[in-house]
């Protein structure tokens, strides 16, 4: 039995803060849990904080991209926040640019971006 990544709800935003080293099964479980929580709560936004991850490989990168796509189909925008500089450099060299995944420097900016997106496309910076 593996651990699960907790999903917190703040208003209409779901917050996923990954603080432990991810096993593949946890990554798969998170995908299931998150889509179910979006449906259950009617959340409009998801923030995934990866500041605790010192490594993001193609498996985790793919999960972030897939989660963003699934969430969008369920009516929620996903913002990935807190990526470490060394992780960003590694992902680009690995060939994973995470197209289709919105990112923000930190949690505060991620929440701001979600509010802006909710306000409508005209307000997008």
């Amino acid at each position: 039995m593996t651990d699960r990544v907790p999903i917190l709800r703040i208003g209409d935003v779901l917050l996923v803060s990954i603080q432990v080293e991810l096993e593949d099964q946890m990554v798969m479980d998170l995908q299931d849990d998150l889509s179910q929580r979006i449906v259950d709560t009617g959340a409009r936004g998801v923030v995934i904080d990866i500041s605790g991850l010192d490594v993001v490989d193609s498996f985790v990168g793919r999960m972030l991209a897939t989660n963003a796509a699934i969430s969008r189909m369920l009516g929620a925008e996903t913002i990935v926040v807190g990526m470490r500089p060394a992780v960003a450099m590694t992902l680009v060299e690995l060939g994973l640019s995470l197209k289709g995944v919105r990112t923000a420097l930190n949690l505060e900016r991620g929440l701001k971006l979600l509010r802006r997106l909710a306000a409508g496309p005209a307000d997008r910076a």
Binding site: D54, D57, S58
Partner: peptide, 12 residues
């Protein structure tokens, strides 16, 4: 940065 790249390669 080198650590991160190496560990990521090892993970793959």
């Amino acid at each position: 940065v080198h650590q991160t790249k190496l560990v990521t390669a090892a993970s793959e």
